[in-house]
């Protein structure tokens, strides 16, 4: 099993990099996942998105509609794409489990636009 090592703290991840125990999540975990693994800087808006996803998941046990995240947080319409490129990275950095009925797909190597695809 892979681990995230944060100042001596070992956080267990599954094969695809999702937290095994979502309660181990904190800002530091998110920051490490985003910056060290993906080169994404955490800022106030990014953290807001992650916190929203966590609270939505807690309430609804579901991944929120992407447009709804941005609208409810009064962020630009494509905020999740702008901040994370891949919406599932946001889900992962929010410490939530791997969703079994959706994935994201992109075909353009130079201008990646990840599209969320679900089982129908």
């Amino acid at each position: 099993m892979p681990y995230l090592n944060i100042k001596g703290r070992e956080i267990e991840l599954d094969e695809e990099g999702y937290l095994v125990n979502e309660d181990e999540w904190d800002e530091e975990v998110a920051q490490t996942m985003l910056k060290d693994l993906e080169g994404i800087e955490m800022d106030k808006e990014t953290l807001e998105i992650l916190r929203f996803m966590r609270s939505y998941y807690k309430k609804f046990n579901a991944f929120p509609i992407l447009n709804a995240v941005c609208k409810k947080l009064h962020q630009p319409k494509e905020c999740v794409h702008e901040k994370f490129l891949d919406p599932l990275l946001a889900w992962k950095a929010a410490g939530l489990p791997r969703p079994g009925t959706m994935y994201t797909e992109s075909h353009d190597d130079e201008h990646k636009v990840y599209k969320l695809i679900t089982a129908q």
Binding site: K59, F60, N61, A62, T101, M102, T118, A119, Q120
Partner: peptide
Amino acid sequence: NHLGIQPHA
């Protein structure tokens, strides 16, 4: 439903 969406969601 396929996505596992619960009624309130």
